[in-house]
Write a protein that binds this DNA or RNA. Structure first.
Lengths: 326, 326
DNA sequence: TTGTAAGCGTTATCAA
DNA sequence: TTGATAACGCTTACAA
């Protein structure tokens, strides 16, 4: 691991000043052909690469980096978001630091602090469930929130139609004659979860049904936990005849549990699930384009980074309802 | 967006020298309690955050960043790898820049160059199909390759048992009486693909069968392409009675196409597929722990970053065979 | 224990 | 067109 060549080394080798090297590297035209050639030769010979850290040190200079702070990289929803974000960032010649909060708001706070220290040019955040009032860092770095509107602050965000999507999904189950519909979801205080749970309640209410607390299972965070919850529900005194699942992990758990039990329970859920079409039981999924969500959020972020100063906006992307085996 | 406070500002506000501030920030004990308090007060008042860029500028100092260069962030295999990498990096107080090559080796080369410019402390790379001889950057930055051993150079890598896994999968199909087994895969020159195709051929050979070129479909890169290929195979003169699929995307496409056609064709494949257990047709999957692959590669990378100088090693992770509906 | 001075690699400024 | 010089914010070396 040898020491890297610097501009000084190149300048010495080419017998020119460092500024000439800098100009050549940055494509400044005001350098004579002769010197330019010598510099290029020296760069090649020494294997010189400009040091991006030093370049970014200068105030006003950008690091050409944005940060994406999500719950969990391996969740297909978030990895699709990351894909979209990375695509747009690349188009703007930026790289993306991806970090996971694992749903812990303290981790989120620490990560945001670290990103600010590193002078990232912008932040994309899926906010963890917690009041964000004191975390408002929008003064120093542009931020766009994803999937959820953070509690306590006004900020740019790109979200999904959580309530209406959930209402439609549960409405479908109601239309098929179900009256005992269970809800499986994660943290009820996360705005997206609250919206979906709200849609579930609204649909029941609209149908003149009263909510059954024993059919509502929150704070589930993995397919396994969801499967266990379904198991419990199925052996309860009055089991549900249908299930609404708040997100893709829940849906996977539900389908596994139903497969295992052999019972026919109809399912509706938020998010897409790979191979959903191969499932035996009737199934409705409220799907959306998570890659596009990442793209739009990142596009808005770059607009802010480039000085857009309109008031904070919330973009709601469309959802599409898919029915399988209906 | 106001100017950020610097150490000088803090020093002035606290009426001490910059070095005292630096010492306090870095937890150096040799500062009197009195001055430490004043510095902390000033830091809080000014909202000071140390500038990580400036800190990393010093030679020998680390950027506390590693880069992960993969094909596609949204592929579940790679996002699982990213998850494992991020976990280990975090434990070492590093952040991860994630970038996608989209299987283009020029993009890979450009990304590696960019990462070196940014002085990342280490690189994790899923090599694109291409001779890597001239890309050997291991002299300046530690690198661990993932999933595939790059052509042309000796380097650390963490891989899966591609050939033996494929052989076992195809062997299972042979054992069930199939003799016309199709192969669906991606780029045949990628070492992982070559290994799996090799395992397929080896299994056929061991069974005394000759390879049918018309049953081998390479250069498929999405579930859709794989589904189309299956469609074609099924309507051909002598369709296959079984299919081996090289990776998760292929498997998803195969299962969708079979569902659509209604024909019963048995399937064996590499990688896990969500909801595989819900599929009707007999199915064998060679599964593995992609998160662990990310973890091990990153662990090895940090060992190299910390000076481990043993010869390059190749770690092969175990695979597990899962049979559904068998 | 504290602070001063130098320098990391680059670019902006400005004088030649 | 060129290049010497001074920053950028921080840490190491060294002196007080």
């Amino acid at each position: 691991m040898k020491r890297k060549a610097t501009m000084r080394d190149v300048a010495a080798a080419a017998n020119v000043g460092v500024m000439t090297v800098s100009r050549v590297v940055n494509g400044d035209q005001r350098v004579t052909e002769e010197r330019r050639r010598r510099v290029h030769a020296a760069i090649k010979e020494l294997g010189f690469q400009p040091n991006a850290t030093a370049r970014a040190l200068r105030p006003g200079q950008r690091t050409a980096t944005i940060a994406l702070i999500i719950e969990d990289v391996s969740n297909p929803f978030y990895s699709a978001v990351a894909h979209g974000a990375e695509e747009v960032a690349r188009r703007h010649q930026h790289l993306v630091i991806v970090s996971a909060t694992r749903r812990d708001w303290k981790t989120e706070r620490d990560l945001v602090t670290e990103m600010v220290r590193r002078s990232v040019d912008g932040l994309l955040i899926v906010p963890a469930p917690h009041d964000h009032t004191e975390l408002d860092i929008a003064q120093s770095t542009p931020v766009v929130y994803l999937d959820r509107v953070p509690d306590g602050i006004e900020a740019d965000s790109v979200v999904l139609p959580n309530e209406s999507g959930a209402r439609e999904a549960v409405g479908w189950l109601l239309g098929r004659g179900h009256t005992r519909i269970a809800y499986l979801g994660g943290h009820p205080d996360v705005r997206s979860g609250a919206g979906r749970l709200g849609g579930y309640r609204r649909a029941l209410c609209d149908a003149g049904l009263t909510e059954r607390p024993e059919l509502i299972r929150s704070n589930l965070h993995s397919a396994e936990q969801a499967a266990d919850a379904v198991q419990e529900l199925l052996v309860s005194e009055r089991p549900p005849t249908a299930i609404f699942s708040d997100n893709n992990r829940m849906s996977v758990g539900v389908l596994h549990a139903l497969e295992k039990s052999g019972q026919t329970v109809e399912v509706a859920g938020f998010d897409d699930v790979e191979l959903a079409s191969l499932v035996r039981t009737p199934l409705l999924l409220v799907t959306h384009d998570a890659v596009e969500l990442g793209r739009q959020a990142t596009t808005l972020l770059f607009e802010r980074m480039n000085g857009l100063s309109t008031p904070p906006q919330t973009i709601t992307l469309p959802a599409v309802v898919n029915v399988y085996n209906g």
